[in-house]
Design a binder for these strands. Structure first.
Lengths: 335, 335
DNA sequence: AAATCTGATGGTATCGATACCATTGCCACA
DNA sequence: TGTGGCAATGGTATCGATACCATCAGATTT
């Protein structure tokens, strides 16, 4: 016995003395079947341990009940929470999640989109907003509803759920300026294909320009370090070399901020007295009982939830949804 | 036009003046088609933007090229790395990942297994090792290969890839004992269905027993806190109340350890001078440039990779694989 | 009493691929 | 010259469900 034999709908039907179609109705639209028949069929289903073959169902109904999601990386825990939100909401509506990764590379994304489309998903969630031409063509001709998440793109494909990284960067920088900080640097990690960090940096720059505070200092994290915290530590050191009178740094993410904080305390620099440090992300480790980091929090889980709701609800699917869920400047102990 | 029209294999075949089956061969087994025909078909595929319908293929070939994965939670970044490993390896072999979550609840897991089986996956990866009877029955009768990961279970269903949490707990405790620590407490979070933490605690207990150091102190983290770091902070405070002469704590995870460290520094307790603190997990934040935490590291990504390889390779699939990937005690600054 | 409706059920075609077997043409070898 | 083998390709049945339409009994309407 190499191939496991699955119980089919016909097996159930025969055993319960009904037509296949009635079994199908018991599963999909129970209200259309008489109480008595339903009970009988349900008993047989349990008895035989019948598990409907969704792939067959997908083929004939032209609905797969699968949503494909494409994320840049899973390591970043902010993505993890979005996946959580997606997963939970989808399951509640009887959908499932097909997950793929792009590693921030548009080429890989294109390939992944193609593979995902091969499964005929009822919707697609894309965490990146930079797409190749062939990816766009593929998406357009497939007609599959798409939700882009995290960043509000300039030219949305279809639906969007996210927030403005630009405004987030600007907001946190404005806050530092209002707190009388004079020399504010930005520590980023310029991964290709990651527009989010760049947009935050742009917000930072514009806030400085606007305030007349003058010169901006963008430190490009050394990607040869394996962890973002390492990048933050070395970036902070660099910034201090360039600007000895540095009194604030805006970090592109919470882990980077963590590295910066550690480096600062290693040098005996007092936070927030001599130095203000801010992050992005609302990671758990940023909380009061841990880093106590002043940071921008995003509703990661909610982004996933809302994206799922749009895709699942045929009505919402009609129109283009652009949802800005905003962000929150959380003031804690580091700035 | 409500329903998008997909290009089918027949469309391609007609256009290229061949039979459908030849198109199928061009895609699955190109070497069986003459060079010239292949080129012609490939041109048409590109021209029409044909994307094969994998669900249909799955139905007729009885192979879905889908692997279902069931994880307790995604928030924990150690799981994230496993998913990364899985995802990467599967994609390389032309498989895809269907993801579901159990939230540490066996009931939810059972339901999720049923739904996953509905998609007729070629394999299943389970991150938990506690299963309900009906889940076990379902798995057995489906005949789908299963890999249990992370914890080496007492009664494996099929394949296993993981390491011994018990030994990990024992190893780190032994290390503390050898470092002349006298009063060692354990801070855990007893989530239902999470055997891993319990096994670590058992290792801790046995290490103490064995050394003749006497009394163990197990602090059960207050789950009403939303973050593990908060649990660590409050757990540490509790431990100190019970044992004022405390000089070491074994924390069930890195975030918990982080909370404990912060609480310690808030109280002016010196680490590692007065107090040793260890974690579990090898999180990024534990690294040198950040927490500099002494901890047990697991090969999270590799677990995913190996699990995927077992499921994808028909040969390995034959026999039961029990793979112990071990762990690593990483000595850093906190113990 | 005939016509109409409604709820419950079944039959058949169909979704888009692959499996399996058949066919064709060509070459090599006895 | 005939036979066997092989490479390339095609035809048809099939996978397991759902869509669509048909049927039929019994109730309701006129």
């Amino acid at each position: 016995m190499d191939k496991p034999k699955w119980v089919t709908m016909k097996d159930v039907a025969d055993r319960a003395n009904v037509g296949k179609i009635t079994v199908s109705r018991v599963i999909r639209t129970p209200e259309k079947v008489s109480q008595e028949t339903r009970r009988r069929v349900e008993d047989v289903i349990r008895e035989l341990g019948y598990v409907p073959d969704e792939t067959a169902g997908a083929l004939s109904s032209n609905r797969s009940r699968v949503i494909g999601a494409l994320v840049s990386t899973l390591s970043d825990s902010v993505f993890a929470s979005t996946i959580e939100g997606l997963s939970r909401t989808l399951r509640q509506s009887g959908y499932e999640l097909l997950l793929s990764k792009t590693d921030y590379e548009p080429e890989l994304e294109t390939a992944a989109i193609r593979t995902l489309l091969g499964r005929r998903p009822d919707g697609l969630v894309l965490s990146s907003t930079d797409h190749t031409d062939s990816a766009l063509k593929l998406l357009a001709s497939s007609g599959v509803p798409v939700v882009e998440i995290w960043q509000l793109p300039d030219h949305p494909i279809d639906h969007v759920v996210g927030f403005s990284n630009y405004h987030a960067g600007r907001t946190v920088t404005d806050y530092l300026i209002q707190s009388s900080r004079q020399r504010i640097a930005f520590i980023g990690t310029s991964r290709a294909g990651d527009r989010r960090g760049k947009r935050r940096a742009e917000g930072y720059r514009d806030a400085l320009m606007n305030s007349g505070l003058g010169e901006a200092l963008y430190i490009d994290g050394d990607l040869s370090f394996s962890s973002d915290a390492d990048i933050g530590a070395s970036g902070f050191a660099q910034a201090l070399t360039r600007w000895p009178d540095l009194d604030a740094v805006v970090c592109v993410s919470d882990p980077v901020a963590m590295g910066a904080i550690c480096e600062a305390s290693r040098r005996g620099i007092q936070i927030p007295g001599q130095m203000a440090i801010t992050g992005f992300g609302g990671l758990e480790l940023a909380r009061e009982s841990a880093l106590n980091l002043t940071t921008i929090e995003f509703p990661g889980q909610k982004i996933g939830k809302v994206a799922a709701e749009i895709l699942v609800d045929p009505e919402q699917n009609e129109r283009k949804n652009i949802v800005d869920l905003g962000f929150n400047l959380v003031r804690r102990g580091t700035a």
